[in-house]
Amino acid sequence: EEKRQVKQVAKEKLLEQSPNSKVQVRRVQKQGNTIRVELELRTNGKKENYTVEVERQGNTWTVKRITRT
């Protein structure tokens, strides 16, 4: 359940930055209360990979860091 929520948060964050792209989740890793989500962003056939680190704060998820990989 929490992985599902985190995927959603990570996707939304990337789509905010580039709204007309397609996002696909590649991998989800958990480390303590930080969850790392690896995503693939496609814009006009151009692929970019991103890693989004999401942290739990109380009962909400906040995006800590977005890295292009």
Rank of each mutant, 00 (worst) to 15 (best):
E1A: 08
E1G: 07
E1P: 03
E2T: 08
E2Q: 14
E2K: 03
K3Y: 15
K3M: 15
K3F: 15
R4K: 14
R4V: 05
R4F: 07
R4A: 11
R4H: 10
R4Y: 10
Q5R: 13
Q5S: 09
Q5N: 06
Q5G: 09
Q5H: 12
Q5I: 14
V6C: 05
V6G: 07
V6K: 01
V6T: 02
Q8T: 06
Q8Y: 03
Q8H: 07
Q8V: 05
Q8C: 04
V9I: 14
V9W: 04
V9Q: 05
V9E: 02
V9T: 04
A10D: 00
A10H: 00
A10F: 02
K11Y: 05
K11R: 07
K11P: 01
K11Q: 06
K11I: 15
K11M: 15
K11L: 13
K11W: 05
E12F: 03
E12M: 07
K13H: 07
K13I: 13
K13A: 15
L14E: 01
L14K: 00
L14F: 05
L14M: 13
L14P: 01
L14I: 10
L14R: 01
L15R: 05
L15W: 03
E16P: 01
E16Q: 09
E16K: 04
E16S: 06
E16A: 07
Q17S: 05
Q17Y: 10
Q17F: 13
Q17E: 04
Q17L: 15
S18T: 05
S18K: 10
S18R: 09
S18C: 12
P19Y: 01
P19Q: 02
P19F: 03
P19I: 02
P19G: 03
P19C: 02
N20S: 08
N20Y: 06
N20H: 07
N20Q: 07
N20C: 05
N20L: 08
S21R: 01
S21I: 01
S21F: 01
S21D: 02
S21K: 02
K22C: 05
K22H: 07
K22N: 08
K22A: 08
V23S: 02
V23H: 01
Q24K: 15
Q24V: 12
Q24F: 14
Q24P: 01
Q24A: 13
Q24G: 05
V25Y: 04
V25H: 02
V25S: 02
V25G: 00
V25L: 03
V25Q: 01
R26M: 12
R26N: 09
R27M: 07
R27V: 04
R27S: 12
R27W: 12
R27F: 11
R27D: 08
R27A: 11
V28D: 01
V28K: 00
V28L: 13
Q29H: 14
Q29N: 12
Q29T: 14
Q29G: 08
Q29K: 12
Q29C: 10
Q29A: 12
Q29R: 12
Q29W: 14
Q29Y: 12
K30H: 14
K30L: 12
K30V: 15
K30S: 15
K30D: 14
Q31A: 11
Q31W: 15
Q31D: 12
G32A: 06
G32I: 04
G32H: 05
G32K: 06
G32W: 06
N33Y: 05
N33V: 06
N33K: 10
N33H: 09
N33W: 05
N33R: 12
T34F: 09
T34W: 05
T34S: 09
T34A: 12
T34V: 13
T34Q: 05
T34R: 07
I35W: 15
I35K: 01
I35H: 15
I35V: 13
R36A: 14
R36W: 13
R36K: 13
R36I: 14
R36C: 09
V37K: 00
V37Q: 00
V37C: 04
V37Y: 01
E38D: 13
E38T: 13
E38R: 09
L39V: 07
L39M: 09
L39Q: 00
L39H: 00
L39P: 00
L39D: 00
L39T: 04
E40V: 11
E40C: 06
E40D: 05
E40K: 05
E40M: 12
E40T: 13
L41Y: 02
L41A: 13
L41K: 04
L41I: 05
L41D: 02
R42D: 14
R42L: 12
R42W: 15
T43A: 11
T43E: 14
T43P: 02
N44E: 13
N44G: 10
N44K: 11
N44S: 11
N44M: 07
N44Q: 12
N44W: 08
G45T: 09
G45F: 13
G45M: 10
G45R: 07
G45V: 05
G45P: 02
K46M: 11
K46A: 10
K46C: 06
K46E: 09
K46I: 13
K46F: 09
K47Y: 08
K47P: 07
K47I: 15
K47D: 05
K47V: 12
K47L: 10
K47E: 06
K47N: 10
E48T: 05
E48I: 04
E48V: 05
N49S: 09
N49F: 14
N49Y: 14
N49K: 10
N49M: 14
N49P: 04
Y50F: 10
Y50T: 01
Y50I: 04
Y50D: 00
Y50P: 00
Y50Q: 00
Y50H: 03
Y50G: 00
T51M: 11
T51S: 13
T51W: 14
T51Y: 12
V52G: 00
V52S: 01
V52D: 00
V52P: 00
V52M: 04
V52C: 05
E53D: 12
E53M: 09
E53N: 04
V54C: 06
V54H: 01
V54I: 08
V54R: 00
V54F: 10
V54K: 02
E55D: 11
E55S: 10
R56I: 04
R56T: 04
R56Q: 08
R56P: 04
R56Y: 05
R56G: 06
Q57D: 13
Q57Y: 12
Q57E: 14
Q57S: 11
Q57N: 10
Q57R: 07
G58T: 05
G58Q: 11
G58I: 05
G58C: 05
G58Y: 06
G58L: 09
N59H: 09
N59K: 11
N59L: 11
T60M: 12
T60A: 09
W61Y: 11
W61M: 05
T62Q: 14
T62I: 12
T62V: 14
T62M: 12
T62S: 13
T62W: 07
T62A: 14
V63I: 09
V63G: 01
V63S: 02
V63M: 02
V63R: 00
V63Y: 01
K64W: 05
K64Y: 08
K64D: 03
K64T: 15
K64R: 13
R65Y: 08
I66Y: 03
I66Q: 02
I66S: 02
T67P: 01
T67K: 07
T67G: 06
T67R: 07
T67F: 11
R68E: 10
R68V: 10
R68G: 05
R68M: 14
R68C: 07
T69N: 13
T69L: 10
T69Q: 11
T69E: 13
T69Y: 12
T69H: 13
T69S: 09
T69W: 12
